[in-house]
Amino acid sequence: MQCGNCQFENMPGVQTCGRCGASLQLALLAIDVHPPRASRAAKQWRRWLPGTRYWRRFRAAVAGALAGVRGITGWPSDLLTPGVCLRMIVPGWAQRHAGRTVRARWMFGCYLGLLLSGLLFLGTGLGWLLLGLALSLHAASIMDIAGARVLDFQRRMIYSGAAMLVLVAVVYYPAGQLLSLVATPQRFNLAAPPFEAGDVVLVNPSAYRRSDPQPGDVVHYRLSPQDARVAGPGRYPGIYRLQGDRVDRILAQAGDKVTCGQGKLFVNGRPSPWLPINSRQLPDRLEITVPENCYLIFPSTDLLPPAVWQIASIVPRGRISGRVYWRNQPLWRFGSIR
């Protein structure tokens, strides 16, 4: 009987090694007594990511929910495992997990293409169509792996619809809400120089949650509905109804004294570094002091008579809905707005 510790040949039947004293009962088995160790990076990762503690709990919850789903629908248990279900969040990942690499690559590639094109055309009909196709492809990838054995057409359609609903509720609606916090598309239905009809700009509604707008920022704002009377031809005055969404640059803030004349703008007696977004449109003569909690924004994208500018240029803080930072459409004028 050879000792596993020192390879000494002991007499048969003895309990401990005659040379080193090691137990021969367990020594007969090839047992490694050195425990596995976590790498430094793994320990750091575990320490930094407290969620890893709850991963096991999360998996257990998913497994419980899946057992419930399987119980109700009679779905084969080998298709819906927690590992597969969690990977369904990315199209093609579950296929890759199942060993179908080529299909996984195609699905992921097509999905990524549709999603990115959809985001590129965000705010247009084509953009919504592409995003819808991406969603359909995602649902199809789920059905490809989970509904592989569902052959009945009617049941397949029902499950596809259910998958789509779940995807919308769990992935796309929250993602859309998050996206809308930083990028809300605004489409110009009419030409408003320098914007053309059909242009789409991205507005960041969260830009002014923690800070105030500053002169120079291009903002999206909504004029408060009001009527401006101007002298018209004959006995009757012209009435301009001021309302609707506009995009233009902030030129001055509360307390600033603004004078305008001969195509030049002065703020507090100094030439302003900023001009309206349509710099050709400046009033011939204007003197205005910006009231408290308001900003001066010339409606330069509109053709308004000079008498209306006095009223239309004062925008309360609450009417500014976000910062405009990107022109998404048309693609040949794609870029940031400064």
Binding site: G4, N5, C20, G21, A22, S23, Q25, L26, A27, L29, I31, V33, P35, P36, R37, A38, K43, R46, R47
Partner: peptide, 30 residues
Amino acid sequence: LELDRSLAAGWAGQVQMLLQLEEYPEAELW
């Protein structure tokens, strides 16, 4: 444990040390 693999206290001690070293999956495995 190299000298005596039948030492249960040694195995338990190793597990406890892995726990103190914050290596929980390894401690569970061991």
